[in-house]
Amino acid sequence: MVARQGLRRKRNILHPVLATILKRLGLGVATLFVVSAIIFSSISLLPGDFGEAVLGQAATEETVAAFRRELGLDKPAPVRYLDWVASVLKGDFGTSFSGRAASGVDRSRSVAELIGPRLKNTLFLAGVTAVIAVPLALFLGLTAALYRNSFYDRSVNAMTLTTISMPEFFVAYILILLLASLWPVFPSLANVDASTELAERLRRIALPALTLTLVIVAHMMRMTRAAIINLLASPYIEMARLKGATRSEVILKHALPNAWAPIATVIAFNLAYLVVGVVVVEVVFVYPGIGQLMVDSVTARDTPVVQACALIFAGTYIVLNLIADIIGIVTNPRLLHPR
């Protein structure tokens, strides 16, 4: 009995919200492990291998075998997986296969070195887009809910639906046509490197950021509007009106605080897309981001780079969804203030 009470007291040290968050965090790590296994095995299933891809059809079996041995590709898959996981846990993503031609001169670079600047570029573009798109989407969604079924609401809905219905490369080319060619305000190429100044960098990524904004605003805006409108039928909203609250008070003070969870989820989803789904936009604007790198590496069978990219993408999804979950928890007074 005493022991049991002791246990209970121990459990109470953690605020239930903190306990839930820790649980989610643990689940996130577990998910990442599962995903790493899936990534590893699906890449092993790709036809052909780097040895053959580099050395070509003409290479003798011995050369290929020797090359494979050098890269460690001859070991059984589970061993290679464990080696990979162990080194990733130490922070070492391995060495890229490319640059290691049969000539014998090793010009290969480490995966971290290869991905680092690309990831920075991608996060920069995603960050700039998010800073524009998220507040814009929230503003449009809230005002559309406030004036629902008005002309304003309908035009916002129609506009966002139009942009989301067009393929992103199409939006990109239209913007290039309008803002780079007809009225040359922004450059059509977003080729930046480490030495580019911040102001110049922002000017160059203006068009890709604008393209991505147009693509993701619709989804977030519509979800915000729907989440708010969904709550407007609640008895407590009627009560708020009968207590004399104005329309904007009803939306901002009485509906929005209860709508954060679904809104946060859809924002997280779109932010993740900005990191992992932008390869088409990167290609159109020749922007050196991580999406392009991954596609190139898949073509070249550069397994370590592909694996590292896939792991980063998975991690992005998990972290962003975790944040959305936490927002959902801390904005729910039932969880934050238990009985």
């Binding site: 609640s234 008895p235 407590y236 009627e238 009560m239 708020a240 009968l242 207590k243 009485h254 605080p257 209860n258 904005t331 007074p333 039932r334």
Partner: peptide
């Protein structure tokens, strides 16, 4: 106004 279901008529937030 005093509503029927107080549980539903109070804003949970």
């Amino acid at each position: 106004y005093v509503a029927q279901s107080a549980a539903a008529a109070f804003n949970p937030a």
